[in-house]
Simulated scan of single mutants.
Amino acid sequence: MGAPVGVGIIGAGNISDQYLRNLTAFPDVRVLAIGDLLEDRAREQAAKYGVPRAGGVDLVLGDPDIEIVVNLTIPAVHVEVSEAILAAGKHVWTEKPIGVDRASSLRMLEKADAAGLRVGVAPDTVLGPGVQTAKRAIARGDIGRPLFAQTTFQWQGPEIFHPNPAFLYAVGGGPLLDMGPYYVSALVHVFGPVAAVAAVGLRATDSRVVQVGPLAGQEFPVEIPSTVSVLTQFEQGGQASSLYSTDSPLLRQGIVEITGTEGTLVIPDPNTFGGPITITRPLAEMIVPPAPVVQEIVEVEQEGVLAGRGLGLLDMVRSIRAGRPHVATGRFGYHVLDTLLSIEESVESGAFVPVQSTIDAVGSIPADFDPYAATL
């Protein structure tokens, strides 16, 4: 109490830079150790960011000064690593998704509950000023009653930038499981829990080729649908249509539009922490071509301090110290996973699939939340 919280990291791969850049700048946490199966990679990251200790996974799990461990491993082993963290008596912050199947993910959450430990789940982008400001605007009634949403994520795929993209096309990956958590999380923050989904999907090719890095030219299999179109029904009313694709030469990402009875709100890319927020009002009168269509567009001022990955962990740290719930809970992450797996099942069955899990009202990040303030 009264001091920064000790944090460890397991997984020193591609995304660890984003976490380390921010966590080493937040006064309320102190990154004490990095562990990886490739110990030299862990040591390189530790040296780069001034982290005092690095080596294997056991180094992190056995450190008595570490209270929370960040799980940055590949999705297929998220649950295994999270359970090891819990067994070591430490809280878990895990990259998304929480797991790749319901049974093991739920078992891990039950173990956390039994041990009195917390689980937090990415993405925490939706906790940034962008989505949170938009969420407050909706709560104020700025667009009236929310009716429906449209989201789009389409491009040609991560093999053009990622040095080892095969896991993104394996079970637990793909545009749905890799990018879906951002969009589903944003929608659940606005509309509440998902009731049912329907989807169709396709796989454009059975294999892909690495485009960059030391593995360039290497072919790898595509195990999942690379394009998925989704219809979503929410428990509290409202619906959404979403596209997830890595088969499109046309780049259209980060599109989240929420239409209410009094306007359409454009939310920033849920894979980022902030951005422009606008509300388009209904036409005041009929526009007859060739006269240009001019509509009232209102800019919503973004509230809050812009940071980056690690924001959800920081909220968890402060919440633990204050004895209150954190926002990006394990149960929230499980509901998102349950929704995504239900979408996969709908692709296979061709029918609407009910989402079995539900969650209570989703918390919010206050507008005055400052990641760079020392509060502990």
Rank of each mutant, 00 (worst) to 15 (best):
G308P: 03
P181R: 07
P325H: 11
G62A: 12
A42E: 08
G238T: 05
P289D: 01
Q132W: 00
R208N: 10
L250P: 00
A291L: 09
P354E: 10
A374D: 10
P123C: 03
L202E: 13
E159L: 04
T358K: 07
V228Q: 10
A373L: 12
D338H: 14
P290R: 09
P371K: 01
R331S: 09
V266Q: 14
P366T: 01
V294T: 13
A351E: 15
I258E: 08
P123N: 06
L341M: 02
P371F: 06
E296W: 00
D124K: 07
M316K: 05
V228N: 09
R30L: 06
L127T: 12
G254F: 13
L106Y: 09
G217L: 03
R145G: 02
G35F: 05
H162D: 12
V184Q: 05
R30N: 09
S319P: 08
A240P: 02
V230G: 05
P97N: 13
A284H: 05
D368G: 07
P75G: 07
A240C: 03
V100H: 13
Q356W: 00
I66S: 00
L86E: 14
E257L: 14
N271F: 05
D113N: 03
P163D: 09
R281M: 06
T125L: 13
I297D: 12
G11H: 07
V100G: 12
V184E: 04
E67T: 01
V77H: 15
F273V: 02
A139N: 07
G310I: 02
V355A: 08
G13M: 08
E95D: 15
A134N: 04
F352D: 13
P4D: 04
T280C: 01
G254I: 04
V298W: 13
Q45G: 03
E83N: 13
A361I: 06
G13P: 11
G323A: 08
P214K: 11
F369A: 11
A204F: 13
V70H: 01
Q236T: 00
R318N: 03
Q356K: 13
R53K: 15
E83C: 03
L61F: 04
V327I: 15
V230L: 07
G13C: 09
I365P: 01
G238W: 01
T232R: 00
D338L: 10
A367I: 00
W93D: 14
T329Y: 07
V305F: 04
W155F: 14
S226I: 09
A361S: 11
A87I: 06
T261R: 00
E219L: 00
D65G: 07
D247L: 04
Y372L: 05
I143T: 10
G213I: 09
A307C: 07
D269C: 04
V190D: 08
V77W: 14
S242P: 08
L250E: 15
P289E: 06
I343K: 10
L117G: 02
P97G: 04
A186F: 14
G180C: 08
G201Y: 05
F153R: 06
D28G: 10
G275K: 02
G201S: 12
G6S: 12
S349N: 06
Q295L: 08
P276K: 10
Y49T: 06
L215M: 11
Q356V: 07
A33Y: 14
G312M: 03
L283I: 07
Q356P: 01
Y182G: 00
